[in-house]
Design a protein around this nucleic acid. Structure first.
Length: 555
RNA sequence: AGCCCGAUGGUGUAAUUGGCAACACAGAUGGUUUUGGUCCAUCCAUUCUAGGUUCGAGUCCUAGUCGGGCUGCCA
């Protein structure tokens, strides 16, 4: 089983008899869509609960009604369900605790540990001090408990306008940790809440809601990302100073970043709003809905989350690792089909017209239990344009004048001639097949170095294919200037392709391996007359890599 | 500048807690192959620096260096 520093801590606590059970949680704010970075948080919390035989809670951290709504809750639930994460009855909302939180705020006032402050937001800011200078006490800091109680009650009753007052914890305005300089507990916000309606016009801050929510639910380990590290003293302060039913422990780990990707909600939102992508579920987006539409599998994402590990080091993972996990998963389960994405016609001159010969290919090579499909061969076929070269370089094993190759599952053909247009582009290839090679081998057992895929020019299914490259052309899109300037103008390319007949049965969401090309899935934009496939991920291509290297050497 | 955190191949993680720096991805080379895929083999490190403790240090101590976070009535 994978281990990490958090599990080491839990092991030690368990050995010391500190817990009866382990309880973790994933606490999304319903104000945006889940992305691949969240998966790390989701699975570290989820797998720890699973592996230790504990509970996993899903809690929506909805303490800011001005940004949150139900559509996000639904989208997040859908994404988590797709990932295979299960929380059973343990679905909670921070808004479920508003009443309890309010009572605890009153308790702090009664203890002389909280006060109502009339300072304006600007004044609060100037009183806070700076990174290097201590802050000053608010002139309202020493109001009597009675006055604070009355004022806070008034805040709750709607007696005061937004921003006119806040409730603050009375801690230490000179504390070196800014979060401890009398942090805000409640602010006035006359805003409709998607769950509590207009019941409240004051809402608790994150810091006042999170740890207490954990304590109410009996969460033992509140695992979150590094930027909350400086909040831990405050998290602990509330837990220590409130009569909470349990004492959760917050442990922080680093966020996941990916090369060639931006991961903040704000930046993803900008990509959508400025129209650089078609929406949150654009297949180029690192959102879960984007990956789902792209054809990624939950298994691949889960494996990826397992492999990246959990530490406190700033983490930038090579996107190639995600693609590796995907290929590994799809290699074992995607049915094989043939499709030609950049077609050039081949006429097999010694093959009769108006005849169709049917060959057979396995759905999954090496696993006959997955069955076979029939593949038609006709006099005219399409092959990939880059599978033919008039003047091939060394080590080119595909079709060329006088060269023989195998048409996958079918037979051997030898190029005898080709036709060019006025510009010298090859427009058609003429070839002859060896009747003795039917099935893909010959009695004389002669070797052919290359096997290429093909699609009948008459027995096929035409469709649109959307080819993708990374959205950004910089490994770190934020490295120089505005990340928008590093958008890859070639991230989407649409082509018209031809596929083998069985592809007519493909349904939205199905993923296939187009042999020798990559994995492709059926996009929701598909209509009965216009099938659309997304390139999920290409196959590794050592030939292309080799060519790229040759090009680099020449230039 | 004050506080907090981090530092092991190109990348991400390990290292039986003081005992031969391991695994994966990426990259390179070769083999197998009816997918130039898969699979298999081989190669790829002064553990940030300098001192110190020790028979022995990635691990402990001291001093630096570099990187990240924090001045919302966001989460």
């Amino acid at each position: 089983m994978a281990t990490n520093f958090i599990r080491d801590i839990i092991d030690a606590e368990l050995a010391a008899g500190k817990h009866d059970a382990i309880v973790t949680r994933f606490p999304p704010e319903p104000n945006g869509y889940l992305h691949i970075g969240h998966c790390k948080a989701i699975f570290t919390n989820y797998t720890i609960a699973q592996d230790y035989g504990g509970r996993f809670h899903l809690r929506f951290d909805d303490t800011n009604p001005s940004k949150e709504d139900m559509s996000y809750v639904e989208a997040i639930v859908k994404d988590l369900s797709w990932l295979g994460v299960e929380w059973g009855d343990n679905l909670f909302f921070a808004s479920d605790y508003y009443r309890q939180l309010y009572e605890w705020a009153v308790y702090l006032i009664e203890q002389g540990k909280a006060y109502v402050d009339d300072l304006s937001p600007e004044a609060v800011k100037s009183y806070r001090g700076t990174l290097t200078r201590p802050g000053r006490n608010s002139p309202y800091r020493d109001r009597s408990i009675e006055e604070n109680l009355t004022l806070f009650q008034g805040m709750k009753n709607g007696d005061f306008p937004d921003g006119s007052k806040v409730l603050r914890a009375k801690i230490d305005m000179a504390h070196p940790n800014l979060n401890m300089r009398d942090p805000t507990i409640y602010r006035i916000l006359h805003h409709h809440h998607y769950r509590t309606g207009d019941e409240w016009c004051i809402y608790p801050m994150y810091d006042f809601a999170h740890g207490q929510g954990d304590a109410i639910e009996g969460v033992t380990h509140s695992l979150c990302s590094l930027e909350f590290e400086n909040h831990r003293p405050l998290y602990d302060w509330y837990i220590e100073n409130l009569p909470v039913p349990s004492k959760p422990r917050q442990i922080e780990f680093s966020r996941l970043n990916l090369t060639y990707t931006v991961m903040s909600k704000r930046k993803l939102l900008r990509l959508v709003q400025e129209g650089h992508v078609s929406g949150w579920d654009d297949p180029r987006m690192p959102t879960l809905s984007g990956f789902r539409r792209r054809g990624y599998t939950p298994e691949a994402i889960r494996e990826f989350a397992r492999r990246v590990g959990v530490t406190k080091q700033n983490q930038v993972v090579d996107i190639a690792l995600l693609e590796f996990c995907l290929r590994q998963d799809l290699e074992a389960k995607a049915a094989r089909r043939m499709a030609v994405l950049d077609p050039i016609k081949v006429t097999i001159t010694n093959f009769p017209a108006d005849t169709v010969e049917w060959y057979q290919g396995p759905n999954l090579p090496g696993d006959e239990s997955m069955g076979f499909r029939k593949v038609p061969l006709t006099r005219q076929i399409y092959i990939e344009r880059d599978d033919f070269m008039v003047d091939p370089p060394p080590k080119f094993f595909r079709l060329a004048p006088g060269r023989e190759v195998r048409l996958r599952y079918a037979c051997y053909i030898t190029a005898t001639d080709y036709k060019v247009d006025r510009d010298g582009n090859v427009v058609e290839i003429l070839a002859q097949f060896d009747p003795a090679s039917r099935g893909g081998s010959t009695p004389d057992r002669r070797k052919v170095k290359g096997t290429i895929h093909f699609v009948s020019a008459t027995e096929n299914v035409p469709f649109q294919v959307r080819l993708y490259q990374s959205l950004f052309n910089q490994e770190d899109p934020d490295s120089d200037g505005d990340f928008i300037d590093n958008l890859n103008p070639h991230s989407l390319k649409v082509v018209n392709a031809f596929g083998e007949p069985r592809l007519a049965e493909a349904r939205v969401g199905d993923v296939f391996q187009f042999e020798r090309k990559g994995y492709y899935c059926v996009d929701p934009d598909t209509t009965p007359t216009n099938p659309v496939f997304n390139q999920t991920v290409s196959l590794r291509d050592s030939w292309k890599r080799r060519q790229g290297r040759q090009l680099r050497i020449r230039n």
